[in-house]
Design a protein around this nucleic acid. Sequence first.
DNA 1: GAATATTTTAAACGGTTGTTTAAAATATTC
DNA 2: GAATATTTTAAACAACCGTTTAAAATATTC
Lengths: 204, 204
Amino acid sequence: MKCVSEKSEDKIREAAKRVFLKKGFDGTTSRDIAKEADMNIALTNYYFRSKEKLFMEIFKDLMEMYFQNIIHILNKPIDIKTKISEVVENNYRMMRQEPDLVIFIMNEIHKEPERLLVKLSLYSQLKSTLFNQQLAEGIESGVLRPVPMESILPLMTSCIEFLFLGKEMHQKVFGISAEEFEAFAENHKEHVKAMICNYLILEK
Amino acid sequence: MKCVSEKSEDKIREAAKRVFLKKGFDGTTSRDIAKEADMNIALTNYYFRSKEKLFMEIFKDLMEMYFQNIIHILNKPIDIKTKISEVVENNYRMMRQEPDLVIFIMNEIHKEPERLLVKLSLYSQLKSTLFNQQLAEGIESGVLRPVPMESILPLMTSCIEFLFLGKEMHQKVFGISAEEFEAFAENHKEHVKAMICNYLILEK
DNA sequence: GAATATTTTAAACGGTTGTTTAAAATATTC
DNA sequence: GAATATTTTAAACAACCGTTTAAAATATTC
């Protein structure tokens, strides 16, 4: 009985995740989810108490997916140049795997900022990373340009994420296919890595 | 009669623009718009034929607002470094003036990519700008790094736009107020300008 | 295998959606 | 200023929304 119920619950959860990612909270109906999961409508409220509750559960998961890897990478015992490269690569991988993730998160937070109350400990986690220590030491010794962590982190993510966020727009504006976009994004990623390192790491 | 009817029509259009920007197409009801415009519900369908028609009219306007200035700046007879600075500054000004614009556009295109069929001539316009010519010449003569226009343009916009796009998130993550965000964004903007120039313009 | 607990179902709930109607109010024409 | 055209109104429309119900189907317990 446990395995059966978990099966249905998970089926709904996964279906809801797909639909929410594509259409957002407002654009998704309970019937959309039930249809995607191929289950009765009443089951969405039987397992989760409401559409909002189901959404928040998924939203929390996706927020963690969004932030999970970056902290880990920032704490790796590797030099700062390699670290920047890894963060960008990780970001790129995530965007290719789930292109809808960032626009979904940004949009839902934009419409309902209170949803962010979930994540609060992130700043102290970021402050205490090895990356931040390396940054402070590098700036102190003059090998790094004095750029605050609060600026460096968005720089490492925004260029890649924005590209995928506006994927459809970039394709239309530049008149390229989905395949051509892939190649373009790959190339763009390399420029982003080089550009950030070039700026942060001072040559003697 | 003309001036009266235009008054009501514009009142609805402006109200709809405000509500759509804040809540998106799905999150906005006809009654929301009527209430914001302080008019009867039936008038939204009397002047515009449907919610969709009203939306598309506003969406087209906002798309033009989004792209209007950049082409003009790219054609200015100024050196490429100043040009990059102006594009970033223009972007920054736009984001401060209408912080909801980019997330709105990106989200609506993401949900309904066909809405983009409006704008098609943009690529040829971009290709024939003075900026693109300056870029080609600079690369040819070796004073500029060989970066395609398709990569340079997103770099000039993504860093600033993404910051405002995730304004609420960045505030929460870094634990800063709206005022502190303003100061931070101003500083971040300078880093972006310097970083792009530093990468594109090769020192001898 | 009868009794009990859990899961699934079809149908309905009241409320809201975008849109339409037909009459009232107002403005314009001659 | 009567006749006509335009604008605004309150009310209603069917369709859909999230959610609930109560019975049917299935699984579990003893």
